[in-house]
Design a protein around this nucleic acid. Structure first.
Lengths: 257, 257
DNA sequence: ACAAAAGTGTTACTTTTACACCCATGA
DNA sequence: TCATGGGTGTAAAAGTAACACTTTTGT
């Protein structure tokens, strides 16, 4: 039972490997079928759903830990990752979950084991290219798959809260920063980009006004090609002007005082 | 030496009192003399300056820990506090500081003492009524006083980074949320409020446009009094319509998509 | 009487919203 | 040929920016 040994090793050696009390959780967003999706794990033993998360190595930056979690669950490196909040209610920790899980694994765990201590968690959200993701379960889960945002089940612990906060943050940031480079294929159409915005904001936008506004930002390059093999009139393809895109990412769009 | 014993007790008992690896730091803003000020500590032994901070009790929420730190340094309860970011570079921890300080205190500290471990810190910013604050030093500092924002010295560890991030966050939020209730006396004049905005944003605003815009938010009540004992024409006094103010705090002003 | 700060309104400009017709394509 | 979705412009409305004169008060 390699898996069991793996878990056992974490339970036993975790205290010496990881920064105590701290975890990271990742809200991984993807875009597919004109819908925003989020990547969730289904837990072994309890069957609850939850966000992909992990612990922080003793000498690892928080951002690096989140990047690692992301890499492990999606196979992707080099994605857009943003810290958005830290959750630290004492009651948010769920000792019962680990106790139950370990019992079912047949692993004895001491009451004072590091895993059963209180944890605070640093929330990150990630924007990834749905089509490039190969979801992978971790040791404690039996499923890792995409859920439509409107269709997210009840999650373990405070993960619904974390997910909602991530979504709110992204909805805010969309007003100050470009978005989409990490969510869309390299070439995309204006209607696709609009659908992305609509999915994130969960509301309809006017086609003409959307196009005008987004073009003014100056982050798009209109290509000379049109999308092939579509029904109806073929829409033009665009790509991001990555230089200006990154500039806008850094400086924001402004507005306000 | 009551003080030494106090510190010693923290060094010795901290591991059982506090959540390991986690601290909070508070960027405490006040407004005085038409300037934004920030409350800084000067450290004993090293003379470095730093942000007021503290550790999180084993069963204490992060927010509660920040509130406690604030209360201890300013005497104030019930202030505006906002979490803005969490800092977790491994190299941000400064073992030397504690080692040096404890040595000078004449306290022996073990290399594995909890204080010398790596810490991540959760940043909060607070907006307080300058005139109501009675700065109090803590066990490890010899000074606690206000600094003009344009005049902040080099701070210990990554505290300059934390301070700048707090300021940036506040400058962003001022566009979406009302501000001032916690920074101004109950009754204030329009020019005073404008000076506050100018101090936060670090730029001049047009008097007439400022007044119009802020009035449209509907969070101000114009009083029938004018400010007494001032040179020149007496300005009207205003106060916040606290109900609408809090509503705006919750819902934000919108703008954007 | 004058210097210094506060009160107040209008106009031009920019941004946002609402809205409709023609075009290309696959079925 | 028609149903569907994509391309495009304009006019009204709202919001923002620029700007100057009058009032009050203390000295």
């Amino acid at each position: 039972m390699a898996l069991k040994r793996n878990i056992e090793s974490i339970v036993v050696n975790g205290a010496s490997m990881f920064l105590p009390s701290v975890s990271v959780d990742c809200v991984i967003f993807g875009f597919h079928d004109n819908e925003m999706k989020v990547l969730l794990l289904q837990m072994k033993h309890t069957d609850e759903y939850g966000l992909p998360g992990g612990f922080v190595l003793k000498d690892e930056a928080l951002d690096a830990a989140a990047t690692r979690v992301l890499q492990e669950r999606t196979g992707l490196t080099d994605i857009f990752l943003q810290q958005f909040a830290t959750f630290g209610e004492p009651k948010r920790s769920d000792k019962k979950f680990h106790l139950k899980a370990m019992k079912k694994e047949g692993i004895t765990i001491d009451k004072n084991n590091w895993l059963l201590q209180r944890f605070i968690t640093v929330g990150y959200y990630a924007l990834v290219d749905f089509s490039k993701v190969i979801p992978k379960i971790d040791e404690l889960s039996i499923g890792c798959s995409w859920f439509h945002l409107q269709n997210v089940p009840t999650l373990m612990m405070d993960h619904n809260l974390i997910l909602n906060k991530a979504l709110e943050t992204m909805q805010q940031q969309i007003n100050h920063q470009p978005i989409g480079y990490n969510l869309l294929p390299q070439k995309f159409t204006m209607p696709e980009l609009q659908k992305l915005y609509e999915a994130i904001l969960n509301k309809k936008l006017d086609r003409r006004n959307f196009q005008r506004k987004i073009l003014v930002y100056g982050i798009l390059k209109k290509l000379k090609e049109v999308k092939q093999g579509v029904a109806h009139k073929a829409p033009f393809l665009y790509s991001f002007d990555i230089k200006k895109y990154n500039q806008a990412l850094k400086n924001g769009y402004t507005g306000g005082w």
